[in-house]
Amino acid sequence: MKITLKVWRQKNAQSEGKFETYPAHDISPDMSFLEMLDVVNERLIEKNEEPFAFDHDCREGICGSCSLYINGRAHGPKKGVTACQLHMRSFDDGETIHVEPWRAKPFPVIKDLIVDRTAFDRIMESGGFVSVKTGSAPDGNAILIPHDDAEMAIDAASCIGCGAWVAACKNASAMLFVSAKVSQFTLLPQGHPERETRVLDMVAQMDKEGFGSCTNTGACEAECPKEISISNIARLNREFIRANVR
């Protein structure tokens, strides 16, 4: 395959960035998107040029590092996958591919395609601790959990915190992330002691970080690589109302 890559280059958070064009030939359709970026970068290194920086880690779709806005979509054109699970066969031969970093005020660009996503860590921290029983080990099935609740909780917990929803949302809202995290605790009895403070504190921290508000466009759900449902956002809203009137 032959493609033309237009990659966002930016030295650091302070400097202005711009697109650089890199024509790439001999690209195998079986390469993952990240492997293709590696190949292009290696060729840049051979020419003594600076390779572009991008986030990546597990390369098996579970870490949420590969934050790339590819051709106007978070994680590229395929549904339910991260950029590392996207393959070059999803593109046309001769296609021009734009690669941009996530764009949001709470995600400043660190370098090229890498953005600072520590805002999520601060939101998680604001959720606080979960009370646990100490003492002797409890029986495996001491706490009974309805099967459907367990399923919903694990669906919510499958969020990998990649930030695709912030990137795709026209309001750069982090609501799907926060709602998934609130849901995974709220749906299980173990999360109940801190049920109210958790939702209030996490929403407050989310607002403090400067994310936009949700307008229910559903873009997050459509772009989420883990296909997390916006019914979690409705649950977040319910929990928020409940915590406020209680």
């Binding site: 106007g72 709470p106 309001n171």
Partner: peptide
Amino acid sequence: KARPVGYAVNRPSENS
């Protein structure tokens, strides 16, 4: 204000 720098290429019609 939550997105001061926009995307050069964006396809929101694909998701909303």
